[in-house]
Design a protein around this nucleic acid. Structure first.
Lengths: 357, 357
DNA sequence: CTGTTAGCGCATTCAA
DNA sequence: TTGAATGCGCTAACAG
């Protein structure tokens, strides 16, 4: 790494003595020769009940002084903010970044500023985040990502969130239904069910499942749904379940473990997320086991890249961006119901990784 | 979508009359029977110069009242915040989500809250975002993503950012070196250069380049570097250049256009980003042209998924997460230099999509 | 160590 | 319509 002076920096002025305080509304008012109130009304007041002559002078002064309204001060004075807090498990995971993209889109449409935080799937960290988020006094807190079962901090989280709601905030959970808040819940169970029956219909009879660790609700639901689907389709063979991390590398690891165990009695591997499926496929291929030919693989979520891998991955589509958008709209709605549970439907998408047998 | 009452909501209390204002520090002080100052010192003051007896009473009162410090009020009173503003082109793009992941990691480590915004690659939107970000009085503003050349709002953006710096803020640009601010700049040129010479060394002689639209700096640099590399390697055949959007679908579209044109005189296609390369590969394969066999493909960035596609994609690695981390560290550094340009080295990663000829 | 007081930047009520 | 005054929730002198 080399460090050089930036040639684009052409300011020939002598080094400034230090940070000058930004212009305040007071400065603008003085510059324009009007009162604080008039300046405030011209700049930020919604209904403009200011004479044009004054208004223009204020605007000119603001431009000249390069005025930027202090949002914190506005928040204190108004007693409300234009903020939405978004907490996700891992922003580099396409699942969450897609949801975030949707959420941010409609948030910004509504003039809201999004502050984001990452839990890394740690319940403690999540609690901590919600705590500081609360301090922001956001209008909305969005929690995306599976919460763990029986976590010690669960009650504290609920308490924190309830306090937030008690003071007029709105919370929306994405992807869970086990906390007493408005929820946008993926049909994990149904989606996996339908995937299982579809695959059984394709002639598959012997399955393995790559699941998340046992305390992750989303994983549990998907595994259960898949199992129910197999049952409903009359599949009676035992299904192998491998637990692993909720990541690509977790999937890879699970794939390796399946290989070690032997794949002879397995026709199809269902990974509870696409990212994990991708990892597993990589592991298989590395050992000369070709996905889609030697072994069928299916995932869940339909993240953008799975249509671009080879073979393209069969999966259950979750309308991720849409979910993000809806979560914010839901929270913004006049008819917001803090006890509502909205189920987001999923659809099975069959691709080359699961050919008919 | 169905809406039902959430069974987990077991609060049997009568409907609350309306949002109760959150407890203030004043409330806590009164509850604890101490002064405002003492409450403040016990709760938020860094150096605890408060008698334990008092402290405990304050803490208890805070817990009882479920007190949450109002960050906006703190910001106003202190005259500073713990915020960093991060602006990216598209958070669903792995390139940016990886950078964001890195940035958020060290930001949170430093106790900073990240507020994020998405430009959608619109310079106007970017300006607007920086304006409102300025209002937050963040400590840092991070701009990731290529700015367009000759944009009409360029000067306004510079002005806004300079005002921000003038009042003590720090701005770091990621991936550009054409704006007069501290810059963390990928070696786009060198990386593409090295890729070109490596590919020439593999025996490739006839190339096509899938580029972004002509005003995107990153694209220009990568195309130029690639061309220079070919020249240096003694390749004298003309290189076909196709311009398209900076997205997967843009790459797909460019791939289709190349197919229509005919691929007979092309041995290797270099897409200026991995995402675009993935799109192009999909287009090729759809037409029966097998990447890695019928045509070689290379990308740039080394986003996580490209090692999981088939054939795995040859690319130029940009340490994205690392870049995000370093950007924040750079901004936080005691020796911050607003004119510095730090070049982030890249490395060529050869994979199956570009076999030796 | 504690309490009183004066702001921080801004919105808004109330008179004028 | 405009301006003066009050208050938002909190921190930081300052004096006790």
């Amino acid at each position: 790494m080399s460090t050089v002076e930036n040639p684009a920096d052409k300011t020939g002025a002598p080094a400034p003595v230090g940070p000058a305080a930004p212009a305040t509304l007071h400065d603008v008012a003085r510059e324009a020769g009007v009162s604080l109130a008039t300046a405030s009304r011209s700049l930020n007041g919604s209904t403009r009940r200011v004479a044009d002559a004054y208004r223009d002078r204020v605007l000119a002064a603001a431009a000249k002084l390069d005025y930027s309204p202090n949002l914190s001060a506005q928040a204190v004075a108004r007693g409300s903010t234009m903020t939405v807090g978004l907490v996700v498990s891992d922003i580099a995971d396409p699942y969450f970044s897609s949801i975030a993209a949707g959420a941010m889109r409609v948030a910004e449409e509504s003039g809201l500023v999004v502050t984001m935080a990452v839990t890394g799937r740690s319940p403690e960290r999540e609690l901590e985040i919600v705590r500081t988020l609360r301090g922001q006094r956001p209008r909305i807190i969005l929690l995306a990502g599976s919460r763990s079962q029986g976590s010690a901090v669960r009650d504290a989280l609920i308490g924190e969130l309830q306090s937030f709601e008690a003071s007029g905030g709105r919370v929306v959970m994405i992807s869970q239904r086990d906390l007493p808040f408005a929820t946008l819940s993926l049909d994990n169970d149904d989606g996996a069910f339908e995937l299982a029956t579809t695959m059984a219909g394709f002639g598959y009879r012997r399955f393995a499942v790559i699941a998340g660790t046992a305390n992750v609700r989303t994983s549990l639901d998907r595994v259960d749904g898949f199992r129910r689907g197999l049952l409903a389709a009359g599949v009676d063979s035992e299904t192998v379940v491998v637990e692993t991390e909720f990541t690509r590398d977790g999937g890879y690891d699970a794939g390796r473990r399946l290989l070690e165990r032997g794949l002879d009695d397995i026709e199809l591997v269902f990974a509870v997320t696409d990212v994990m499926a991708l990892g597993a496929m990589a592991a298989f291929r590395e050992s000369g086991v070709e996905p889609g030919r030697d072994i069928a693989v299916a995932g869940f979520d339909d993240i953008p890249t799975v249509r671009d891998v080879t073979p393209a991955l069969t999966t259950v589509r979750a309308p991720l961006v849409d979910i993000g958008e809806r979560a914010v709209r839901l929270a913004l709605g006049d008819d917001f119901d803090r006890a509502s549970v909205d189920a987001v439907p999923t659809t099975v998408v069959v691709r080359a990784s699961t050919p008919r047998r």
